[in-house]
Amino acid sequence: MFNELDPLLNSPIRLAVMSILLTVKHAHFNDLLKETQTTQGNLSHQLKKLHEAGYVQIEKTFKNNYPLTIINISEKGKSAFEVYVENIKKYLHLNENNT
């Protein structure tokens, strides 16, 4: 049953990141760090996975001589998230029927 859910999204940090990115035009790395309450290394690792899958776009720039990472969700990421949510709904619906 769980195999139907996208393994890339079925992890707490990545799902939280994708959920945040759906509600913003773009997000700052530090804002994601604050919202997800994880470590910098872990967030970078999870973002790398999402980026490799084409779910997010990452822009690295500078602001006042400090590195700045801006992340936004891609169309592929939006579609994957929609499918993921639909699958959750289906699963919960089946679960309700079973009980």
């Binding site: 769980f2 079925n10 992890s11 945040i20 993921y84």
Partner: peptide
């Protein structure tokens, strides 16, 4: 690195929490 896998209820809870927090982000 081992990753915790979510069940659908946990997934839904995470999505709801994020959406509720950003809804007040004015």
């Amino acid at each position: 690195m081992s990753e915790s896998v979510l069940n659908p209820n946990e997934s839904l809870a995470i999505i709801q929490k994020v959406v509720n927090s950003t809804r007040q982000d004015y």
